[in-house]
Design a protein around this nucleic acid. Structure first.
Ligand code: MN
Ligand code: MN
Ligand code: MN
Ligand code: MN
Lengths: 225, 225
DNA sequence: ATCGTATTTTAGGCAAACCTAGAAAATTTT
DNA sequence: AAAATTTTCTAGGTTTGCCTAAAATACGAT
């Protein structure tokens, strides 16, 4: 149990740090270096913020090692992730945003909307369980569906798979995949997995072949058919 | 002409100050006292901010008198007002918010949404020209429709009028009016305008009478039928 | 015109987020 | 096991936005 401590609402910065810790590590420890590059902030800023987050009871922090979320920190991170993913879905389905642009807008809106807004959007959307990128949407109660997907980079030649999720959020990568129709729901057949450089070649439902570099292939999460 | 000066996006605080100056004064001068009470901020903070706004070229400021908007400041204020009013309309019509609750949520969201978001919402709503409180929505080009309404407090006994707009944004007042059906569009007959205390009594379309205090009556804007 | 009150400004502080430069610790390479 | 490199932390500084207390100015009333 954690002290209630009736805190004032947390800032956008605090929220983004918590999401970043959660995003990498789940229950594990996020290194300062990772947070620094992920949040585009100096390591000095990270050190300072981690000390403050510990002060606030949101992370456990050990100097020179990094930070992991407390129960309270995890709850706050999941609350933001829920907002983020519902907002993305809303932007796509109701405002006609292009698939690759929803993330950026959601990154700001997630800090400005109320719980009231969030739940009304959830209702409007019919309580979806995945966002436009295939990521599971945490429940209002903080539960998160288990993921049974595997990276395309680990598939074998001949596998027939369906894209379940795209684990990237930068616009260039999303645009690239979108242009080739490599989005959640698409069915692929694996033509080649090259050990040398990790390039994976797949054929889509229309018989078109696509070659993906190792890093990109690792972020395309699939499930066998 | 004002220097371009390619500024980074303005903060929420700056935006709310600009809206407050615009809200009172139009082209006139807003006194520090007014801004202080409207924004719930100390007069010291107001002095400081007005100096900065002048520095940024957003207001003209004369010590001990107050501030008025420059062209650039006015444009920014109108941009925010447009967002605010479109968001309110959206919250009411698409998310089912109660009439009296839309303002508060819009006050935060107006600072977080992009122009892209704003214009997509405008399109979704069919480019409305009034928000749920009857206030005109500025165009994307910064134009604002002329208002030909008069305060109910200035009406004469026997007048038949239609509510065009409610010029309040605090939830208690809005709830009070909403409960009595005194919202934009409603038609009323003026039964009494009491010189002594300014109380105005009106009869609505269902034959129900309502007495409004002078201040409240002044914020109900009507047009003769 | 002067007094008293109300308003506004100045002075001095504080907290949140960021930064750069340099010191310290950890890790990897030789 | 040193040395070299990388990572992290500390020190000190900046900007934004707020505050209280006290001084300066303006205004309204005698
Ligand atoms: Mn996203
Ligand atoms: Mn964010
Ligand atoms: Mn409003
Ligand atoms: Mn606002």
């Amino acid at each position: 149990m954690v002290e209630p401590k009736m805190s004032q609402p947390l800032s956008s910065s605090v929220g983004d740090y918590l999401k970043a810790v959660w995003g990498l590590a789940g229950p594990g420890v996020a290194a300062p270096k990772y947070l620094s590059s992920r949040l585009s902030v100096s390591s000095a800023s990270v050190s300072e913020m981690l000390r403050r987050l510990q002060e606030l009871g949101l992370v456990e922090y050990e100097r020179y090692r990094g930070a992991s979320l407390t129960e309270e920190g995890r709850a706050e991170a999941l609350r933001l992730v829920r907002r983020h993913r519902l907002i993305e879905t809303f932007l796509l389905e109701h405002l006609g945003y292009p698939w690759e642009e929803v993330h950026e807008e959601a990154e700001r809106l997630e800090h400005a909307v109320s719980d009231n807004f969030t739940e009304r959007v959830a209702q409007l959307l019919g309580h979806p369980d995945r966002d436009p990128h295939g990521a599971p949407i945490p429940g209002a109660d903080g539960t998160l569906a288990r993921e049974d997907s595997r990276p395309l980079s680990g598939a074998s030649v001949g596998d027939r798979v369906r894209i379940l999720r795209v684990g990237r959020e930068d616009t260039p990568a999303l645009t690239h995949l979108q242009d080739r129709g490599l989005v959640p729901g698409r069915v692929l057949r694996v033509e080649e997995v090259r050990g040398l450089d990790g390039v994976v070649t797949v054929e889509d439902e229309d018989g078109v072949s696509h070659a993906l570099g190792g890093v990109l292939a690792a972020s395309v999460l699939v499930r066998g058919l």
